[in-house]
Design a binder for these strands. Structure first.
Lengths: 144, 144
DNA sequence: GTATATGCAAACTTTTTGCATCAAA
DNA sequence: TTTGATGCAAAAAGTTTGCATATAC
């Protein structure tokens, strides 16, 4: 239940926060603030854009969401807080999640050999940029 | 010579472009547009901020620079176009370049096994986030 | 009842644009 | 001479803020 997740963090479970949180969790396309606002207006037409801005920042602050950096000039948010990676399609700026626990271990082992001094690593993420070979098809990842 | 690099791309070698390009190449701290502008004003006080914006975008377009994505709300530029990675210090948002050709090969080999369909990879970059263990010291990378 | 969140509008920051002038090729 | 770049100021885009009202706890 979303209100419990918010309560655990000591946040008041307002309808706005619940709707924004739920919208983010159900939206896997790394929406901008504006996109979240547009989606939410359908069910909650009186919500203010400023509230969406404030709430998304609050969720990041309390580690219930991530802010994803892009080169587009707008922030994007991500309901996932577990480690994962991103595939970015160049023409469309579409962001696809890519879960792969092995990558982190692979890189950690590699970096250990590099003897980086005075750095405590908190997160490693990779970004794979590319383009679709066939625009009409989706990208599929067949792990095995 | 900078004018030759610009000419090769079919770009007019204006004094502004040469100064901006040179400033970016000599500045390894991944400056924002504003920072580049402030630096350049010292030697070229009449330059316009709009020109710096336009020129940096032109350099990216002609692959003479990279745009680096951050979560700060401003763009940052990078004079390097070869593959390299970034270490981001969390408190300060400082960005440190990290050259490591092996990482790309390591990841390419790993990803080949994942059987990702319909994606042509153009670039792989990793971001290592962390904090300094000792704030007063720098981070050193001792490759071996 | 109290502390905190919302919603509005205004302010602010960053980036883009249109256009007349200017300079490189 | 021609083509494209610069610089200015104005506009647009994106984000933050102050404050009165409303609501969760």
């Amino acid at each position: 239940m979303t209100w419990e997740i918010l309560a655990e963090k000591g946040l008041k479970a307002t309808p706005q926060r619940i709707i924004i949180y739920d919208a983010l969790m159900n939206e896997h396309s790394h929406p901008t603030t504006e996109t979240v606002y547009e989606r939410i207006k359908v069910i909650h037409p009186t919500i203010s854009l400023a509230t969406v801005y404030k709430t998304l920042e609050t969720l990041v602050e309390y580690q219930l969401a991530d802010k994803v950096s892009t080169v587009e000039g707008t922030y994007r948010y991500d309901g996932k807080t577990e480690d994962h990676h991103h595939i970015i399609i160049e023409e469309t700026n579409e962001i696809i999640d890519f879960d792969d626990q092995q990558i982190k271990d692979l890189l950690k082992a590699h970096l250990a050999q590099k003897n980086i001094e005075n750095l405590k690593i908190t997160n490693i993420s990779i970004q794979i940029r590319g383009r679709k070979i066939d625009d009409s098809k989706t990208i599929t990842i067949n792990k095995f």
